Simulated assay, not measured.
Amino acid sequence: MKVFVFDLDACNGCHNCQVACKDEHCATNWLPYAEEQPDTGQFWCKVDEEVCGRVPHVRVNYLPHLCNHCDNAPCIAAAPEAVYKREDGIVIIDPRAAHDPEALVASCPYGAIFWNKELGIAQKCTGCAHLLDDGWAEPRCVDSCCTGALRFGSEEDFAEEIARAEVLIPEAGTAPRVYYLNKPKRFIAATIVDIEADEVVEDAMVTLQRIIDDEVVAEVRTDELGDVWLENLEPDRYRMRVSKEGYLDLHQEFDLSEKDRSVPEMRFYRVPAAV
C-alpha cells in the first residue's frame, strides 16, 4: 500500500508540485482515471501559505494539500458505485460512472473533491494512477519536488517516519494515507527593550509557564538582538517572566488558542536608583 509523506521543514513554498499537477492534468484526460482538470477553480494538489506573527517576528509556513486516499474514505461511502480504492491504496472517482457530484464534494472533510459543473462530475487527485500503471515510481507532484519535502512509496518503507508523523483532521476518523512531518506548532516571539536607554536587552532570562498548572515549558535567554523565540508550543495559555539583574521583573500572559503571538517591543525597566 502506498503513502505520501510531507516533511514541512523541507518545503520552501516553490509550488512545483502544484504546477506539475496542473501540467499533467489540464487539457489532457487520463481515462479511465480522470477527465481533464479545469485550468481554474480546481487544485488537486495545492500548497497553502500561512504568514504567522508580525514584523519583526514573522514565520511563513507551507502546507501541501491533496486527496488523502483514506482507508476509511467517506467519498466511497457516499458513492460506492462510483468511487473505489485500488490495491495500491489510491482512491479513484470513476469519471464515467453515474454519481452525485455535490454529495461527493460534501463528503470530503479535507475539501479535496471538486465539482466540474461543465462535465457534471466530481474530480480530485488520482495519485497519477496512469503514470504508476506505466511504470513510474511516483506521481508528478513528487517527481517535481526539488527539496525532497514530498515523497511517495510503500508504507513499509516509511514506517519510521509514519510513527512520528501527523495526519490532518484526525478526529474525522478517515484513516488517511497522507502523513505530515514537522507540522508547525505555535510560537511566542518578543524583543526585550530597555526603553530608557533606547537599546535592546541581551542575556535576559525568559521563563515560560503554562497557566493551567504552572508547569515551566521553556527557559531561554534573549540573544544579541534582544529577541526571544519560544517555539513548538501547544495551543494554550501561558505566562512569561523576564528577569535580569538590575531590572524589574517583567510579566506578561499569552493566549495561543487561536494563533501565534509576537511582541515587537516588550519594555523592560531598570530598578530605580536608591534615593
Results as ranks from 00 to 15, higher is better:
Gly13Ser: 01
Cys14Trp: 12
Leu31Asp: 02
Gln37Ile: 11
Gly41Asp: 05
Gly41Ala: 06
Cys45Ser: 05
Val47Asn: 02
Val47Tyr: 04
Glu50Asp: 13
Gly53Phe: 04
His69Trp: 03
Ala73His: 05
Ala77Trp: 10
Val83Ile: 10
Ile90Thr: 15
Asp94Tyr: 02
Asp94Gly: 01
Pro95Ala: 02
Ala97Phe: 01
Glu102Tyr: 05
Ile113Tyr: 08
Ile121Ser: 03
Ala129Val: 11
Gly135Gln: 09
Glu138Pro: 06
Arg140His: 11
Val142Ala: 00
Cys146Tyr: 10
Ala149Trp: 07
Glu161Ala: 08
Val167Asp: 10
Ile169Lys: 13
Pro170Arg: 15
Ala172Asp: 14
Ala175Met: 09
Ala175Ser: 06
Pro176Phe: 07
Arg186Thr: 05
Ala190Thr: 00
Ala197His: 08
Val200Cys: 12
Asp203Trp: 00
Ala204Cys: 05
Met205Thr: 00
Ile211Met: 14
Asp213Lys: 03
Asp214Lys: 15
Glu215Pro: 12
Val217Leu: 10
Ala218His: 11
Glu219Lys: 05
Val220Tyr: 05
Arg221Tyr: 08
Arg221Lys: 10
Thr222Lys: 04
Thr222Asn: 09
Leu233Pro: 01
Ser243Met: 13
Ser243Tyr: 03
Glu245Met: 08
Leu250Met: 09
Leu250Asn: 12
Phe254Glu: 14
Ser262Cys: 12
Val263Gly: 00
Met266Tyr: 03
Arg270Gly: 03
Val275Glu: 11
Val275Asp: 03
